[in-house]
Design a protein around this nucleic acid. Structure first.
Lengths: 160, 160
DNA sequence: GGGATATTGTTGACCCGGACAACGAAATTC
DNA sequence: GAATTTCGTTGTCCGGGTCAACAATATCCC
């Protein structure tokens, strides 16, 4: 994301002005919440991915192992429901995580259709490390947005 | 397909029928700004798409015609830069919009490499209608989030 | 009890969008 | 005039949303 980086003043082109900083008008986009939310979301995710690049863990994968870790024995439909993703999508996510030895699908004793999701030892370890890095990422956000704005933003979003 | 001798665990207490709200713990996700931003962004975009379904215009397409409409003669690199998308991605977006007769790429008089982007008559009309529907969408958001929260949220996001 | 219906996990297919690499054409730099 | 940079373009790969279909299992209802 380019953003308004504090750049040194470029020498103005003599013949034709306004080549580098054209100050493009956003038009009605300036009043659209979705536009800014999208920009911020992309930025935050990019930062998250960069922070966790050492673990090669995407935001989606992180959210899966976090919720499975906090709710061992969860079914896939429940997990998909709470994360707001499709069951089909979750299947492929779990496929990858299982390949990497982070999660396990055990047969549910109560319901023959369900799988009881659990983290492996490796999964627990990964969750611990990822949580640490994610906290650094969050601290970076706080610093970038200001601790106060970060707090109110988080509370507002959580209330929905 | 998974481990043959995997021990089953019992995740489901019979005390409550677990109808609609299993009260899954979000774990550390509760402190992650990115998670809630993502959820909100998905929700807002879905609502936007639903509102503009009559025009068959995606958020990305809308943002393109808005900015082109507000800055006729813009180059593709400038547009991609202000919207925060790849030049390659914008090429395909413009391809579709041009197919539908909404935008035009005119040769730039000053620079043989550039295209001067403009809206066609149909594009202007589409922009007008889309803006109207987008405003209804925004009003819906205001109602859902509360006008006050909507305002502060918009101001906070715009400041970044 | 048994048939109809619903749920769960799964696979396949389609499309959108981000990320990169490479390219020719045109402009700019030296 | 040669080297470098910019611009639009194409191709490719991958992650992710969406939908349809399906087998296995559970539940409902008479």
């Amino acid at each position: 994301m380019p953003g308004p980086a504090a750049r040194s003043i470029d020498p103005k082109p003599r013949t034709r002005p306004a080549v580098k900083r054209p100050e493009v008008d956003l038009g009605v986009l300036n009043e659209r919440l979705g536009y800014f939310i999208r920009r911020l979301q992309v930025w935050v995710f990019q930062d998250f991915i960069r922070r966790l690049s050492r673990l090669d863990l995407s935001p989606a994968q992180f959210s899966v192992i976090v919720v499975v870790g906090a709710n061992p024995g969860l079914s896939q439909a429940q997990l998909a429901g709470t994360l707001g993703i499709e069951r089909a999508r979750l299947v492929r996510l779990l496929h990858r995580l299982e390949q990497r030895g982070l999660t396990e699908r055990r047969p549910s004793a109560a319901d023959g259709r369900r799988h009881a999701l659990v983290l492996t030892r490796g999964g627990e370890k990964m969750l611990a490390e990822a949580t640490k890095l994610a906290e650094l990422h969050e601290d970076g956000l706080k610093q970038k947005l200001g601790a106060k704005q970060h707090k109110t933003l988080l509370e507002m979003l959580r209330a929905m």
